[in-house]
Design a binder for these strands. Structure first.
Length: 278
DNA sequence: AGAACATCCTGCTAGC
DNA sequence: TGCTAGCAGGATGTTC
């Protein structure tokens, strides 16, 4: 499921294929994807506008339009964006939105589980983050994410560090895969209480967060066999080859050889090495 | 107020 | 072979 590295890979694809294009037609199929709006409202707001840039905050994609409004896209677990040249002959099952561009190509939004969402923000400050996303924590690849911020939010949380890493209002962009990989890289047990972390552990977690996410962006995200993430042109990510713990229960740790274990942390499967992580 | 759980949904898999 | 129960998970709303 798309987390920060996958969404950043999509953002780069959108920036390349979607920016400077004018939207000439919008078709919304079903009402669930645009649930904050009446379906017919979305084409009215978008058609005729030109995309000025494509941004991202955490797992949210933000398409800035020259009209001053922003289209926000969240893929949740199974949302997928694809740029195609019509006629599109692929499977249109689970197709929920179709944006036709002035170069005759189309941006398609698919989502089998329909958790994904598209909404339009018309709040002012057109260059800024939409008001709807104001409660999100800093994006870990931005300069707003500092060791001081991490230490501050950890100090007042008694829950497991893994839960805090997944809390989008604390840090925006980390999901279940990268949360486990970050804890492993930092040598910290995912079950460790956030408030109990030492300064040394906080520093390691902070460093690991940047390192793991940057490496994963370089490898264009993770594509797992059962959870089909694909980029905007239909290519797979490569970072799954570098996973050390995620979904590896029962296999030996690449560092010490002990078997990777699984534990549930607030309902989510978490994977860790009982020897390398303390 | 903070933490944990239920909910939305479909596709896949394990087990009979 | 075919059925079903169970699981997966991001964000939100609800409950304790």
């Amino acid at each position: 499921m798309p987390e920060l590295p996958e969404v950043e890979t999509l953002r780069r694809g959108l920036e390349h294929h979607f920016s400077r294009r004018r939207i000439v037609d919008v078709e919304i199929i079903g009402s669930r994807t645009v649930r904050r709006h009446a379906s017919e409202e979305v084409p009215q707001l978008l058609v005729g506008s030109t995309v000025s840039k494509c941004g991202r905050h955490g797992k949210y994609l933000i398409v800035f339009l020259d009209s001053g409004i922003r289209m926000v896209i969240h893929l949740r677990m199974t949302g997928r964006l694809e740029i195609v040249t019509p006629p599109f002959l692929g499977d249109i099952k689970h197709l929920h939105a179709r944006f036709r561009l002035d170069d005759d190509r189309e941006l398609l939004f698919f989502d089998p589980r329909t958790f994904g969402e598209i909404f339009i923000s018309t709040t002012k400050d057109a260059d800024q983050l939409p008001d709807e996303l104001a409660s999100l924590g800093p994006d870990p690849l931005s300069e707003d994410f500092t060791l001081e911020h991490l230490a501050k939010v950890c100090k007042k949380r008694n829950a497991a560090i893994k839960s805090l890493l997944l809390d989008q209002n604390m840090i925006a962009g980390i999901g279940n895969i990268y949360g486990d990989e970050i804890c492993y890289e930092a040598g910290v047990l995912p079950t460790k209480r956030a408030s109990q972390l030492t300064d040394g552990e906080l520093a390691k977690l902070y460093k690991a967060t940047g390192q793991i996410l940057l490496k994963a962006v370089e490898r264009k995200g993770s594509t797992l066999s059962d959870k089909k993430y694909l980029d905007i042109t239909g290519s797979e990510g490569q970072y799954q080859k570098h996973h050390r713990v995620y979904a590896k229960v029962g296999t030996p740790c690449t560092c010490c050889g002990n078997l990777i274990l699984r534990v549930k942390i607030s309902g989510r499967s978490s994977y860790y090495c009982p020897y390398c992580q303390k």
